[in-house]
Design a protein around this nucleic acid. Structure first.
Lengths: 400, 400
DNA sequence: GAAACTTCTTTCATGAATGAAAAAAGTATT
DNA sequence: AATACTTTTTTCATTCATGAAAGAAGTTTC
């Protein structure tokens, strides 16, 4: 009964018949057109790998529903000229947020998937969900107030803890007092009247990076190396969540170099106690330096402080050691580094070298190891994409 | 033009209209029935996640084409009794082989996925592919001679090295002189006139274990701990191969306890040098004990030899340490142990305990950690399944 | 033993996507 | 400018899979 009902609820949706499984052609078409990746029906046909006849029907419904319009003709390439398609709801947008421990980034993404605005706000996760979501809601309000007459289609939020995506909440977070199973998604959905996608911050970051890569295929691991360490894993274009949604935990892997240092998780010897930004800070303080945040460490390394540079290099090495085991087993197409530490060359270099040394040649042969291309906006882009995906799916919010 | 033609050849097949992309429902249904994984229409519906009505039609065509028959009724579970489905080509079979370094196992699998026979043959991988495949071919011949009038539908072979599944050969194996890119699949296909599936031994083992588990879902990692160490990873019911087909390498992960021991891969500090059966053998010899094979070690441990037991326990612990990093990241539903070492309680106990200690509770909460249920036949069952899958796919060899 | 569920299977009208062919709108060639 | 080719889009009958509802065959409860 259990299994069956789950299957049923997945398979059958809203009474419509036979939507091609796991694929809403209309959403995809809309996204492609909005992103400017296709301009005519025939290009859309190629992009979606569908028959021209089907494309014709899809475009027809999109036009009659008022989502797209035909806007003139394009240049001929030796035959009939294509009729240019464009989204009509150009003014619609989604809101996205990437919450950290001490501050958050919020942004606005257009239907084409472009991040139209990105700003930082003060945000203290330790004040609890009520206050936290109040602050976030107010920030969203001001973004919306700056866009009168434009429609909000959805919201995406990334949180720095284990996220239950289906329930839209965090589960047993280690540094988010009061947030355990607090209905973040439902709260925001009620406040703004739209769908809300909730995801882990590292996963969102991974999705963001993935969506910006040119051959959008393969398996990708994205490591967030900041004050804390996180990782996200993309397979088949989707975030891999694992059996209990806890996949991507890398920060509490035991590593010998960590010795007996006590970790926030209660265990000893976790990677976090030696390779995270927070770890470097406390190691530097132990050496008598006056640092209190990861940003201080960044400054020191940029000023070529030998102690700081050495510790950062060590951090990169230890991270590389742990990741190499995963890469060996997992054989991904790319490993990307993000987070503030990834802006430091010594860190990246040590990470890379450790990865090449610790992995089988067959695995590193065609492996891309690189620093993020999106930088601080990666998480925002990821949550934006999630929000768009959710907005396009199902009970289609009729556009203006 | 290039892109277009590729897309076209993918999308449009043999004039038929709208086959659900990348999926032949009839083959899958047949496979499920033959494998004994479903016994009735309704079970088939759950397994394929299709509507009962569709299943009805699929079964109808399979029956009229003579591939399956209804054979009586099953037990009721509180309602109408299911009508049992079974393949009609009961006499057809596939051959399978699991090649090791010093010997091989070969077997016969029926259409229902049951291993009808399993025997060991002498086989020395170092004699090279020509001789090796001659020996294997002869062994297959005798299995076939014992089954006159029955049809061979396909062959599955597992090899102890990195396998290029698409090409049907091994690529840069470390202990298989002369086998590099030798066309194993093509050679056997030409000799026996059937399709041949070639897979890595650990992957085959993983698939075998997977196919015998009750809720056939989730992500599963299977570790082969024998003279060497290998691992296979199943996701969505399929072997995960990674970007270059090298996924599952666990034996060359660096582990600090290994120190500077030189590994066969040319590197130092690999897990293999301390946690494999071969490693235990050489460590015992260094202590002056008279052992030469992993089987000797097994005997010693069964006789409660303290040295051997201690080293085996260490091996389990080190393996557990490496696997815990992977499990943390990957959050699978199950981790299974196979290989001769997995028959030793001290080994399994140490592995388990290390895994529980080294993993985040959120990950181990619902994690199954167990010794294999299939034992030595796991690889054989896996290759048999692969052979069946291949046989069912494509130009359907019309059954008798 | 009749009524009330359950489970399994089929019937039927419908939606989604298709291929084939034609139409529409160009460009290039004579 | 008439003809021949290209490219883009639509029309139409057809196939695949579906949901809803009914039918078939049991079990459980009162």
């Amino acid at each position: 009964m259990n299994e069956k009902s789950i299957l049923a609820s997945n398979a059958s949706k809203e009474g419509a018949a036979a939507p091609r499984r796991g694929r809403d052609v209309h959403s995809e078409a809309l996204a492609l057109i909005a992103a400017g990746r296709v301009r005519s029906r025939s290009e859309l046909g190629e992009a979606l790998a569908m028959a021209p006849s089907s494309i014709s029907l899809v475009v027809q419904t999109l036009v009659t529903k008022g989502w797209i319009t035909e806007s003139g003709q394009g240049p001929s390439t030796g035959g009939r000229r294509p009729r240019i398609l464009a989204v009509s709801g150009e003014s619609s947008y989604v809101l996205c947020a990437d919450m950290g421990g001490r501050h958050a980034k919020i942004g606005v993404m257009g239907l084409d998937g472009s991040l139209q605005e990105s700003r930082s706000i003060d945000f203290d996760v330790t004040t609890g969900p009520d206050e936290g979501l109040r602050v976030l809601g107010a920030a969203f309000d001001s973004l919306m107030a700056e866009r009168p007459g434009r429609r909000l289609l959805g919201i995406g939020v990334a949180l720095p803890g284990p996220v239950d995506v289906a329930a839209g909440c965090v589960d047993s977070p280690s540094r988010m007092p009061g947030w355990h199973r607090y209905p973040v998604g439902a709260t925001l959905a009620a406040r703004f009247g739209t769908g809300v996608a909730v995801e882990n911050d590292a996963n969102a970051m991974a999705l963001g990076e993935y969506s910006e890569r040119s051959p959008r295929s393969g398996q990708m691991i994205v490591i967030k190396a900041g004050t804390a360490i996180g990782a996200g894993f993309i397979i088949d274009g989707k975030v891999y969540h694992g059996a209990t949604g806890a996949a991507g935990d890398i920060t509490h892997v035991r590593t010998p170099a960590a010795g007996d240092a006590l970790c926030s998780c209660g265990n000893r010897g976790c990677l976090e106690t030696i390779a995270s930004g927070a770890a470097v800070v406390s190691l530097l303080r132990a050496r008598g330096l006056d640092v209190s945040t990861t940003a201080d460490v960044i400054r020191l390394v940029e000023d070529a402080d030998p102690d700081a540079t050495g510790l950062v290099r060590d951090a990169g090495r230890h991270l590389g050691g742990v990741v190499s085991a995963i890469v060996n087993f997992f054989n991904p197409t790319a490993v990307l580094l993000n987070g503030v530490l990834s802006t430091l060359e010594p860190f990246v270099a040590a990470f890379r070298s450790q990865l090449y040394e610790g992995c089988h040649p067959l695995v590193t042969k065609e492996l891309t190891i690189a620093a993020s291309s999106l930088g601080e906006d990666a998480g925002l882009v990821g949550t934006g994409r999630l929000a768009l995906q959710q907005a396009f799916e199902n009970p289609h919010t009729q556009m203006s």
